[in-house]
């Protein structure tokens, strides 16, 4: 049950990354970091209580959205979904991410919510997270002792739990430069257009002609975290992607997921459509002109 009155907290407004890290070192798990706030502020109206909210509002150096064809894409902690959606580089080189951003929530939320916030939320329904998990990437985490990079493959531990330590600031996400022949796509199903996913999927395929060299296939809302589907990836790798292969794949998907019943759908339904969705997202990646969906 929500409240009309938020619980008391100290709002801390550091003005540099160093200052932010110092505050995190002091308050650790007694603090929450506020970037877009679209999750945090809602939680604060429910039962979530936190003593210190560290706002990134005045911290410079966190709004980088930079693409380099050799180095890849860097997304700073304060980069919003809307900024990603406006980026021609993202649209051209990371269609899965762009498609996820396009259907993400509503314009108001896209203007506020951040890409890194979506990752840090560690929800199995995260749309941008699913797309980025398929594309691959690593987070730059900083604390008073220095910094480290954590691959997205190792970042989500369980529902709502990540590898970020309480004193670490997620500074940016780095996504590798797309290889030649890289194709990606994102698809989801929702109850209404403006909704959280009831099931979502993203793929990133390295293609040579009709043949798939390498595949990353991700599915959301079918387990406690976003899941990669290794069996599906293995079938794809080295194979020519034909309608028959896609049919085989869609039959394998169900053995790799463990959905539950919740408010958005049922385990039964998710099991039924998961294969269809994977088949369709692969087709979308291979056929896409980038701006579909």
């Amino acid at each position: 049950m929500s409240s009309r009155v938020m619980r008391d907290f100290e709002l801390l407004l550091p003005e540099s990354i160093e200052e932010t890290i110092a505050l995190l070192a002091r308050h650790k798990d007694k603090s929450a970091v506020l970037a877009g706030g679209t999750d945090l502020l809602v939680a604060l109206k429910f039962d979530y209580a936190i003593d210190n909210v560290i706002s990134l509002a005045l911290v410079p150096g966190l709004d980088e959205l930079d693409f380099d064809s050799a180095k890849g894409l860097t997304i700073g902690a304060k980069v919003t979904i809307a900024e990603v959606l406006r980026s021609q580089d993202v649209k051209d080189h990371y269609p899965a991410l762009w498609q996820a951003a396009k259907v993400f929530a509503t314009p108001q939320l896209r203007n506020t919510a951040t890409v890194l916030g979506n990752i840090l939320r560690a929800s199995p329904a995260g749309d941008c997270s699913a797309a980025l998990y398929a594309t691959g990437g690593s987070l730059l985490l900083k604390n008073a002792n220095g910094c480290r990079n954590v691959d997205l493959d190792d970042f989500w531990i369980s529902y709502g739990v990540t590898a970020r330590r309480a004193d670490e600031l997620a500074v940016s996400l780095h996504v590798p430069a797309p290889e030649k022949g890289q194709k990606s796509a994102f698809r989801r199903m929702t109850r209404t257009t403006e909704d959280l996913s009831k099931i979502n999927a993203a793929v990133c395929l390295q293609m040579t002609g009709e043949t798939c060299r390498k595949a990353r296939v991700v599915m959301g809302c079918v387990g406690p975290t976003l899941l990669r589907l290794p069996k599906v990836e293995k079938i794809l790798e080295g194979a020519a992607v034909t309608p028959d292969l896609l049919r085989d794949i869609s039959n394998v998907v169900i053995s790799e997921i463990a959905p539950i019943d919740d408010q958005r759908s049922s385990a039964e339904y998710r099991n039924k459509v998961a294969g269809v969705l994977v088949k369709r997202v692969i087709e979308a990646a291979l056929n896409a002109k980038g701006d579909d969906q």
Partner: peptide, 16 residues
């Protein structure tokens, strides 16, 4: 009650 808010009670929006 499991959906006494707009999080899980879905009305059609303009785009629907």
């Amino acid at each position: 009650c499991l959906n006494n808010s707009f999080t899980d009670y879905k009305m059609l929006g303009p785009s629907d």
